[in-house]
Design a protein around this nucleic acid. Structure first.
Length: 518
RNA sequence: GCGCCUGUAGCUCAGCUGGAUAGAGCAACAGCCUUCGAAGCUGAAGGUCGGGGGUUCGAAUCCCUCCAGGCGCGCCA
């Protein structure tokens, strides 16, 4: 998102809220049947704030799942809850709404800690209640992208042929296995159906829009909007995109292909091409890490342990962030760069976030990240703090120089360094090193373009690291403040400013802020 | 069975629109703080790029094949 924006694209970030799905239903079932709680009880629990509601639901979700395992007949509760939620009927629907909203709020807060924001929360409830599917269904029937199966194993269902040859959808009469059911024989729509409708809307092809209402306002005034059945005035236009990235893990590839196939069957070939499945691999845990969490590791050993909400096996983002901040704070204090507690806290937060974000971004999206506290908590080597430290070192040089030369303005270095001087500098002693560093710093834009073309944010992360390494090397070899030749010194300072500026911008693309000192 | 992905140093990974002696980080070893803050830097060590064929002047990179592993292929989402 940041990289696209940097390259001049208008981008909006949506988060699909599956507020009518089984996960919400299961948590509601947990409240109602396991805990015998009423709507009022859940409201009180939430209002009291004695427990973290999101953590509470996480545990409850694992508990109800365990209960289903032991009592399969209890699955009827889920079906009941799902229906009530879909029909928006009764106390169960109200609890579901309460739970979903509270969880989304908690999610927004957690994501904000690591510099992630949203523009729009697209809720499944509105896709249902505003008849997005019915609309999409009409279009699909009208254009013959979908057909009714009146015999065979899918009798009574509306299905879409999914066989493809050379990327073209084949409409030939159908072997059953190349068919995806879109509408069940009981008349209800499957998940893919809803997803097709949502994606048609994303591209402005549905001929229908959501209502919108403000959901949350960030401290700087930016509003997060949510879809709504009856909207309020003042919402910016959403959707109608030229290009869409569906950021979902790689296991959903099949379904994303179904959506793209539906687009092609509808004659929207161009949009199908611009519908990118930004598939990333999942995160697993090392065996040691799972043990640390007190979970018995199953024998099937594939080198990592799968994260599973159902089993309650995972690491809560806030816990990890807390641990990172705690560790960063110790480092900040040891280094005694400031005694101001607020300042210390600010730096610790920035460093912690940098460590986490870089850790997640340095891997290409195709490899499974096997999580381990040892690696994720590292602040040395190829890490976020290393990059921040590099920028701070550069700034310190400029700051120290400015202290000794009160008239110095780093912004005017550009003018101080004439073309002739710079040329002499680059051709002179160690000119090759300087030239290499300059060249590397000039590559940000092309690296960004490449990251977009290959859909690989890790390319930015790797570039930041290479640039930081080159700068640290330069920093070590050339002593700038003791440089006797004034003209040369200006050139060196110019280089420091150039690289520091580029690295700062690169880190910004990674969502990493740089502390004043570290 | 079919489809997608992965296999590179002890470990974790870059490099894959072909180009010179294959690169980092971690770990381990040897050094560098009276000098812009050592969250740093330097050195040495570590590799049949899963195996085999092919294309090419040239292959980790492209093609074929085999092996190993992961993930998908639901009237779940």
């Amino acid at each position: 998102m940041r990289v696209l924006r940097y390259r001049g694209h208008r981008v909006e970030t949506q988060n699909y809220i599956d507020n009518t799905g089984v996960q919400v239903a299961d948590v509601v079932v947990g409240f109602v049947h396991l805990e015998k709680k009423s709507l009022h009880d859940v409201e009180s629990l939430l209002a009291a704030g004695a427990v973290r509601f999101d953590y509470y639901c996480w545990d409850l979700y694992a508990r109800i799942f365990q209960y289903y395992e032991d009592n399969p007949e209890a699955l009827g509760w889920r079906t009941e809850a799902l229906k009530a939620i879909e029909d928006n009927h009764g106390e169960i629907a109200k609890i579901a709404e309460l739970v979903s909203t509270a969880i989304v709020r908690a999610h927004l807060a957690t994501m904000l800690r690591v510099n992630i924001r949203y523009d729009l929360l697209a809720q499944e409830s509105e896709i249902l209640r505003l008849d997005f599917w019915a609309h999409a269904f009409d279009i699909m029937k009208h254009l013959g992208a979908i057909r009714y199966a009146d015999s065979g194993k899918n009798a009574g269902c509306w299905v879409m042929s999914f066989a493809e040859k050379n990327g073209e959808a084949v409409r030939a009469e159908p072997a059953d296995e190349d068919v995806k059911i879109i509408v069940r024989s009981n008349g209800t729509v499957t998940y893919v159906g809803k997803d097709i409708a949502y994606h048609l809307w994303k591209f402005g092809l549905l001929g229908k829009d959501f209502g919108y209402k403000p959901f949350h306002r960030y401290a700087d005034g930016q509003t997060v909007w949510s879809t709504a059945v009856t909207g309020e005035a003042g919402a910016p236009p959403f959707g109608a995109a030229a290009v869409a990235y569906a950021v979902i893990d790689t296991r959903q590839s099949y379904l994303q292909n179904v959506v793209a196939a539906a687009f092609r069957a509808l004659g929207y070939g161009k949009q199908a091409e611009n519908l990118h499945h930004f598939a990333y691999e999942v995160v697993g845990l090392t065996e040691r890490c799972a043990k640390e969490l007190g979970v018995a590791v199953s024998a099937e050993d594939k080198g990592f342990v799968e994260v599973s909400g159902r089993k309650g096996l995972g690491i809560k983002a806030d816990d990890l962030i807390d641990r990172l901040i705690e560790k960063a704070l110790v480092e900040v204090r040891t280094r005694e760069m400031t005694t101001d507690a607020d300042e210390q806290a600010t730096y610790a937060r920035m460093i912690a976030v940098a460590a986490l974000r870089y850790f997640l971004l340095k891997f290409s999206r195709r490899v499974i990240i096997v999580f381990d506290f040892k690696d994720a908590l590292a602040f040395e080597g190829e890490t976020g703090p290393y990059l921040q430290y590099t920028v701070v070192r550069g700034r310190n040089i400029l700051r120290r120089y400015a202290e000794a030369h009160p008239e110095f303005r780093s912004e005017s270095l550009q003018q101080n360094v004439s073309r002739e001087k710079l040329q002499g500098f680059l051709e002179g002693r160690d000119g090759g090193d300087f030239w290499e560093l300059t060249l590397l710093a000039a590559q940000l834009e092309s690296v960004a373009e490449q990251a977009i073309a290959t859909e690989e944010p890790a390319a930015i992360a790797k570039y930041a690291f290479r640039l930081a390494q080159a700068f640290n090397n330069f920093y070590h070899v050339h002593h700038i403040l003791n440089e006797p030749d004034a003209a040369r010194q200006q050139c060196l300072l110019f280089l420091v400013r150039l690289v520091g500026g580029t690295l700062t911008r690169t880190l910004d693309l990674l969502g990493i802020e740089v502390p004043e000192r570290m």
